Simulated scan of single mutants.
Amino acid sequence: MLDVQARAALTGPLERAAAGLDRPGVTPNRLTAAGVVLGLAGAGCAATGWWAAAAVLWLLSRLADGLDGPLARRRGADGAGGFLDITADFLVYGAFVVGVAVGVGGSALPFLVVLLAYYVNGTAFLAFSSIAERAGRREVEDDRLSRGRSLNFLGGLTEGTETIAVHTLWCLLPGIAHTVAWVWAGAVGVTAVHRVVTGYRRLR
């Protein structure tokens, strides 16, 4: 829901930072890999209850994820990098949910529902992107969502910006993590339904 505004605000700073990182030893894929390492380390810290460290590592992971795209565009983006990037995102998102679930203890059910919602949501937008691309169609609700990305992108109530905020909130307020997880699972579920319905209608 907030990705268009966030991208508008952050595109300039991220592109300038990518320009500063544009050195022979720094590649987009290495930034993606760094994001994975930082994200998995953050998930590990969450699992052990080191919440401050988990929040910092999570945000650094997302910063690396935000920089690999602008650097790739400076170097000439390729499909392999985009594939690696989206795969890394799903790995880090899922691992962090598991880490938080372990760290807060108690019932894992709300976090399992979050993972289920992620699964359906991700399947819907990845399948839409693949089929739309194969059909030679650039079908999006708002082209600003797909601009600069490797995929056709359907927006929704929950996007990357909201995901970053909620995962950070878990670290800042672990005492209410279960409640946040239930609310978040519902919001992601609404987005999944919206993407399934919208994607089906646009591909007919």
Rank of each mutant, 00 (worst) to 15 (best):
Pro28Met: 03
Cys45Glu: 11
Ala52Asp: 09
Ala6Thr: 13
Val140Arg: 04
Arg202Ser: 10
Thr161Glu: 07
Gly199Val: 07
Trp170Tyr: 15
Ala33Arg: 00
Ala185Ser: 13
Val166Glu: 09
Val104Cys: 05
Val166Tyr: 07
Gly39Arg: 04
Leu67Ser: 08
Leu91Trp: 07
Asp65Thr: 04
Thr161Leu: 06
Ser129Tyr: 02
Val97Gln: 09
Leu2Ser: 14
Val166Phe: 05
Leu109Phe: 12
Val102Gly: 00
Ala41Thr: 15
Gly122Tyr: 09
Ala101Trp: 03
Thr11Cys: 01
Gly42Gln: 05
Ala108Leu: 05
Gly186Val: 08
Leu154Val: 03
Ala41Leu: 13
Ala165Pro: 02
Gly25Tyr: 02
Tyr93Phe: 13
Arg144Lys: 06
Thr11Trp: 04
Gly136Leu: 07
Gly44Lys: 02
Arg16His: 09
Arg16Phe: 01
Leu145Val: 08
Val113Gln: 11
Leu109His: 11
Ile86Trp: 00
Arg138Ser: 12
Ser130Trp: 13
Gly136His: 04
Gly12Lys: 12
His194Ala: 13
Thr161Ile: 06
Gly160Ile: 01
Val140Thr: 14
Pro174Cys: 10
Phe111Lys: 06
Val102Leu: 15
Val183Asn: 00
Thr48Ala: 14
Thr198Tyr: 01
Leu84Ala: 14
Ala55Glu: 02
Ala34Trp: 01
Thr163His: 11
Gly76Phe: 04
Thr87Ala: 15
Ala9Glu: 11
Pro110Ser: 09
Arg16Cys: 01
Val120Ser: 04
Ala34His: 02
Thr168Ser: 14
Leu63Cys: 09
Trp50Gly: 01
Arg134Asn: 05
Arg30Pro: 06
Ala55Phe: 06
Ile86Ala: 13
Phe96Pro: 03
Ala55Pro: 06
Ala43Asn: 04
Trp182Met: 01
Asn121Ala: 12
Trp170Asn: 02
His194Pro: 00
Leu21His: 05
Ser129Ile: 01
Val98Trp: 12
Thr48Pro: 00
Gly105Ser: 11
Leu57Gly: 07
Phe90Val: 11
Thr198Arg: 15
Ala19Asn: 01
Leu115Gly: 04
Thr27Trp: 08
Gly12Asp: 12
Arg202Lys: 14
Trp170Ser: 05
Asp89Leu: 10
Asp85Pro: 08
Pro28Lys: 03
Gly69Phe: 11
Arg204Phe: 03
Glu133Ile: 00
Arg7Asn: 14
Ser61Lys: 02
Gly99Thr: 07
Gly39Met: 04
